[in-house]
Amino acid sequence: MDTSDDSRLDRAVGRVLNVGVTASSACLGIGLGLSMFAGTAGAAHLLLNAGLVVLMATPVGRVIISVREYALERDWAFVLLTTIVLLELAGSLLAAVR
């Protein structure tokens, strides 16, 4: 097994992280601007929370992409490991809402 096989996964992960950071920063920046200077509380609140959710969803998204890529490569050991990480993150979500 050669680690250089992971270059496709590498690119996919890079894309997810890039899109996530850009989208969340945009939401947070506009939301912060609105909440400080425009007095539009509703829109600001929505954008700020959307930005935070996208921020936290970004690493989760790259784990999901990894599960998919490892499944396509039929690398079952890593499908299992990345799935465990997803389950642990689901545990965090559960601990967050109760």
Partner: peptide, 30 residues
């Protein structure tokens, strides 16, 4: 990133994360 998400989600769910200041800090750090 994924490690901090495991913790941040819990603080967020318990209302301990102040969105506007998190935004200011995130943008500042970047």
């Amino acid at each position: 990133g994924v490690t901090a998400t495991g913790g941040a989600v819990i603080y967020y769910g318990h209302g301990q994360l102040i969105p506007s200041l998190a935004a200011a800090a995130v943008l500042g750090v970047q």
